[in-house]
Amino acid sequence: MTTTTDTESAVAEFRRLSDSDPEIQAHGRYFSCSFLWDMEEKTFLFRMHRGKIEELVVDPGPLEGYDFAVRASADTWREFGRPVPAPMFHGIWAATFRRDMRLEGDLLVLMQNLRCVTRQIELLRTTGPLV
């Protein structure tokens, strides 16, 4: 388990990486939506606007709205945060088909932004686990 300071620093690093990522900036001109990463021990609410993280809220309140959610156990998310993830922890499709990940909410929004969301989750391989 990470401490609050660790989380804050990892979140700051994640924001910096995402907002400066060439792939996201190349594909994300219309990447504007909101989504939740539910890591069991912590949750992260992203509000994206034209490819940039407008807001990243750690442990948002219960009535915060978002388009879709990616949920899994903390252990699964920690596996996503390895530099080279093991099989079935290497993407949201893999972990949804074969592990405990769940995709919930308006999945059309996920599909509309699939390339950028996929890339963002892969940035965890650089930052390390957020929980």
Binding site: P87, H90, G91, W93, A94, M111, L114, T118
Partner: peptide
């Protein structure tokens, strides 16, 4: 969607 939907089928 097709291209990125199959992205996770490849190894890192």
């Amino acid at each position: 969607v097709c291209a990125s939907g199959v992205w996770d089928l490849m190894a890192p």
